[in-house]
Design a protein around this nucleic acid. Structure first.
Length: 686
RNA sequence: GGGCCUGUAGCUCAGUGGUUAGAGCAGGGGACUCAUAAUCCCUUGGUCGGGGGUUCGAAUCCCUCCGGGCCUACCA
């Protein structure tokens, strides 16, 4: 069998937040695949890095009054600690803010220049004089120059669908500082991706680089029309690398992020005396990227385009996975299902999640659901009840004697297990881990009845049966070890524990094909605790963002009770805005209103249609995106706060004449503002 | 509204033209007592979302309708 040379990456986590169980779907999936490849005897290197550049990091650093370098250094430390906690075994973990990355960005940039792929043109852009930075389209709001709709983002109008530049907005406002932006010109650099259209058309369709679903999506959404030039520069200030031949400009974060894969490789090569070109310039190397479906666009169009232009090896395959849901719902901080890696590790064994994800993973980009009760029962019955139990119930009988010197007759159980190896291997290779786990559990389901029918506990009572007892236990323990070999990509710690039990390390997939004979057996140690549902509950509680009711929020009323621990997460997600004057606030006419009627808008996924009374005969119709959070009947009669002087907006389902105010990130986490009793309809908020 | 995915036992899912549709978990009955109240045996349970078509034969292929999910749009 020839040894393959395989380079594997998982997407670079952004240095703006901690790792959570959603991220872990990808890192666990990738780690399992890598461990399988290594066990199969292939040369495989697993590389990753923190993604550190961009406006978000710059803003955050300013907000926290420290340097970007301090922010990303701290986050990288946390990321690496979390990954280690889940046994995600990178061969190297770098950072996009590294000298190696800067240099490689420069090389690829040079190549793009030489191919004439880069064009420069002046972009007139709005500049925020208070924040001292140019404003990306989404950081500017104003009135649509075409239809005069207010409160539109800088790139296109929601109301009339016309597209324009942010400088064309009427009365633009920076969402960063609230300042009135100035018009400034800056030279931007563009990669003319359309010139690679024929290449990308071909690449995305050929050689199994992508699952058909992914390929179809790309052809339906992007490749069916000319590809737009890609703006890859950002004027300073910007946290990133300055472009050598374009002083004052940095590469956009999505330009240098994927190059981070190569930079991480380069650093790994330096440390291990490896030849970088062998990994990125040699057609004998396979390159596999594992990513989430949200970043398909960058990895299947821009990235291959960059590599192609620079004469580097293209990805062999881009593996795309879906998102995590918990109990069929999006992860939510309110319900405690937004579980950070470090929180999980405080309560549960990482092996549980690795196994559970493995049973759920397939090559498809469908979302994957974590069902907490299924999680507990699957881990407990499969791993503890079936697999570990095999060793737990037999090892002590052969502690004195060790395994039989020749492998006994076992009704061909071991041979059948060995024969299943190819099919299980194929499932791992195809990233169909769910299938691999099912096949392995079939082996465990056959092994326990063997123990049952040969009853070692009965044999142990009769000294004349000592040889028979040793044989039966040798079979059970070899079946156990065979299963552990097959599970070891998923459960590396269990493999190490088996190594200790048998004193013979599992090194290769083929270790499942030949039984151990004549070797000693150590004292059996517990390998996995069962999941106690209480621990899951505690983890969820720990993850739940505490809701404050009016009494506990008031120190006087709270009395001697403990002060709630409010985290800073919400503030970090949405930083405080710059100071405004009272006149600015006075422009917003907030009024108390009563919901007279609330009805579902059947064709809308997010909207409810509300009829509000501002007192007397003054009525307003408002469409509010709160369908997931409130039922119409819950709303009728209650008081809400409405922006009464917001310009009406034409929506698909009718005219919306205002906006009711609420907090929360959206979807189910939306909380309407109310007023304490005594307030009257129509009164203004001062 | 558009694109993609999906619908099989109470739950999670196998099963892409060929005997009487399977597994695990859960439920019921029994056994064992080595093992982390684990395990083993027996067992209940399905008009394979509905309808139509192709075929000697359909869970599987085609059409259509219905339900669910994701993306997108309408929105925060």
């Amino acid at each position: 069998m020839t040894q393959r040379r395989i380079l594997v990456t998982a997407a670079l986590p952004y240095a703006n937040g901690p790792i959570h169980i959603g991220h872990l779907v990808e890192y666990i999936q990738t780690d399992i695949w890598v461990r399988y490849q290594k066990l199969a005897g292939n040369r495989c290197v697993f590389l990753c890095a923190d993604d550190t550049h961009g406006t978000a990091i710059m803003i955050r650093a300013r907000q926290e009054g420290r340097s970007e370098e301090q922010v990303i250094a701290e986050m990288q430390q946390r990321h690496e600690r979390d990954f280690a906690g889940f046994e995600v075994g990178f061969d190297h973990y770098g950072s996009t803010n590294s000298p190696a990355n800067r240099q490689l960005c420069g090389q690829i940039w040079q190549a793009l220049r030489q191919k004439g792929m880069v064009s420069e043109r002046a972009v007139t852009q709005l500049f925020d004089p208070v924040a001292g930075t140019f404003l990306a389209d989404r950081f500017v709001k104003g009135t649509c120059p075409v239809c005069k709709a207010p409160d539109q983002y800088g790139d296109n109008c929601d109301r009339c669908s016309s597209t324009y530049g942010p400088h064309e907005l009427i009365d633009p406002v920076s969402t960063l500082s609230g300042a009135k932006p100035e018009l400034r010109q800056a030279a931007h650099l563009f990669v003319e991706l359309e010139r690679l259209h024929p290449f990308l058309d071909e690449w995305t369709r050929s050689a199994d680089h992508l699952e058909p679903e992914v390929s179809n999506y790309l052809h339906g959404h992007f490749l069916n029309k000319p590809l737009r030039d890609w703006d890859v520069s950002r004027p300073q200030p910007y946290f990133g690398f300055e472009i050598p031949d374009s002083p004052g400009n940095c590469w956009y974060v999505w330009f240098d992020a994927p190059i981070g894969y190569m930079a991480s490789t380069w650093e790994w090569c330096q440390r291990h005396g490896e030849n970088f070109d062998l990994w990125w310039r040699d057609p004998g190397t396979e390159i596999h990227h594992f990513i989430g479906k949200d970043i398909m666009y960058f990895h299947t169009l821009f990235w291959p385009g960059m590599l192609h232009s620079a004469g580097l090896q293209l990805p062999t395959k881009v593996h795309v996975h879906g998102f995590l849901t918990v109990g069929g719902q999006k992860m939510s901080k309110r319900t405690g299902t937004f579980v950070k890696a470090e929180t999980y590790l405080r309560h549960l064994d990482p092996a549980f999640l690795r196994y559970y994800y493995a049973t759920k993973l397939s090559p498809s980009l469908n979302d994957l659901d974590l069902n907490l009760s299924e999680f507990a029962s699957k881990v407990n019955s499969d791993l503890v009840g079936k697999v570990v139990n095999l060793a737990s119930r037999t090892a002590r009988f052969v502690k004195q004697t060790g395994l039989s010197a020749t492998y006994p007759d076992d009704e061909a159980l071991f041979a059948r297990g060995a024969a299943a190896g190819d099919e299980i291997a194929a499932a791992y290779e195809a990233c169909d881990f769910g299938r691999a786990m099912r096949l392995v559990m079939e082996l465990a389901d056959r092994a326990n009845p063997y123990v049952e029918s040969n009853a070692p506990w009965t044999l142990s009572k009769d000294p004349a049966q000592a040889g028979r007892l040793q044989d039966v236990c040798s079979v059970a323990l070899n079946l156990f070890r065979q299963i552990v070999v097959y599970l070891s990509p998923v459960l590396p710690r269990l493999a190490r524990q088996a190594d200790e039990l048998f004193g013979v390390p599992i090194r290769n997939w083929r270790d499942a094909a030949s039984p151990l004979v004549g070797t000693p057996v150590a004292t059996f140690q517990h390998m996995l605790q069962r999941i106690d549902p209480k621990d899951i509950q505690a983890m969820i509680e720990d993850s739940r963002e505490k809701e404050l009711d009016a009494t506990s929020a008031t120190p006087a009323a709270a009395g001697a009770t403990t002060v709630p621990q409010d985290t800073e997460e919400a503030l970090l997600a949405e930083p405080l805005q710059p100071t405004i004057l009272i006149d600015d606030f006075a422009k917003v006419d907030l009024r108390v209103a009563r919901v007279l009627a609330a009805e579902d808008v059947p064709d809308a996924k997010k909207l409810l249609k509300l009829t509000l009374s501002l007192g007397g005969e003054v009525r307003r119709t408002v469409f509010a995106g709160i369908k997931a959070a409130y039922k119409p009947e819950q709303l009728v009669g209650r008081l809400v706060v409405v922006v009464a002087n917001l310009a009406p907006r034409q929506m698909k389902f009718g005219l919306s004449e205002g906006m009711i105010v609420a907090v929360g990130p959206g979807d189910k986490d939306v909380f309407l503002l109310g007023v304490d009793s005594g307030a009257k309809v129509g009164q203004r908020v001062h």
